[in-house]
Design a protein around this nucleic acid. Structure first.
Length: 243
DNA sequence: AACGTACCCTGCCGGC
DNA sequence: TGCCGGCAGGGTACGT
């Protein structure tokens, strides 16, 4: 489910509650999640985000690295089904994940660096230099999903950003002019910020410009939004605004 | 190196 | 009502 904005919103909820808390116990209900390694007694120093990853910095030089993938989420309210739980002095964080594709693991600083080094720039943390995109012949929509090129954009915000920048999703990445790339960078930042501004209401309230709106009128020009499939993922765009 | 495809999992939705 | 195929906003491991 979650892309950068949803992850940011979650981090904003987690940080004030978990930072400075001490871990009292950890619980895994799924053999794929291993949380041993002496977590108990460590203090949570910081909860932060890089791309779609959640990084929890612990005292004593260990980190919890969480990736929600499609259906992962973290709640403080006890859930019927959860894959894992972190019990702390300031409450319990429950990791739920219906499809069980998400990842929660304990990593050393070296392992964390290795994982984060693979990521391209995070548009909100590192700025949106998209020069890497000029080095690939793949369609721009497909390239935007590659986390090594830009970290945090997923299927929804790729469509949304391209609509905002008026760029056709099928364009070869290496055919984009520098002006178009700058516009795309601004569009990505704007789309992500707009979504984050919804806060926890994002799942009820958010209105997408094109995503999921096949056959409905473009909010800019009224033309029917079209859907196409690119590397097995849905893309939505306005054929008139995005020539 | 770079691209495409298969696969990992489960829940939900629409059609029959 | 019940079953079934298709679909889902993620990433990775392969093969070419």
């Amino acid at each position: 489910m979650p892309e950068l904005p949803e992850v940011q919103i979650l981090v904003n909820q987690l940080a004030p509650r978990l930072e400075r808390a001490r871990i009292r116990a950890v619980e895994s209900r799924d053999p794929k999640i291993k949380l041993d390694r002496h977590l108990v007694g460590r203090r949570i120093r910081r909860v932060r985000r890089q791309g779609k990853n959640i990084v929890v910095d612990l005292s004593g030089g260990l980190h919890l690295l969480v990736h929600l993938r499609m259906t992962g989420w973290i709640e403080f309210d006890r859930l019927k089904r959860y894959r894992a739980a972190i019990h702390t002095t300031r409450g319990t964080a429950y990791f739920e994940d219906a499809r069980r594709l998400g990842v929660m693991q304990v990593v050393t600083p070296e392992q964390l660096d290795r994982a984060l080094k693979k990521l391209g720039p995070d548009p909100l943390l590192d700025g949106c230099g998209l020069s890497e995109l000029q080095a690939t012949s793949r369609p721009i929509k497909v390239a935007l999903l590659d986390q090594r090129l830009v970290a945090g954009v997923g299927n929804i915000y790729a469509s949304e950003s391209l609509w905002r920048a008026r760029i056709n999703p099928r364009r070869r990445s290496d055919s984009l002019q520098s002006g178009e790339l700058r516009a795309l960078g601004r569009a990505i930042v704007a789309s992500l910020r707009r979504a984050i501004a919804y806060g926890p209401r994002i799942f009820e309230a958010q209105q997408f410009a094109v995503y999921g709106r096949k056959g409905r009128p473009c909010r800019r020009c009224g033309t029917m939004i079209r859907r196409l499939v690119q590397s097995q993922r849905s893309t939505y765009f306005c054929p008139r605004c995005q020539r």
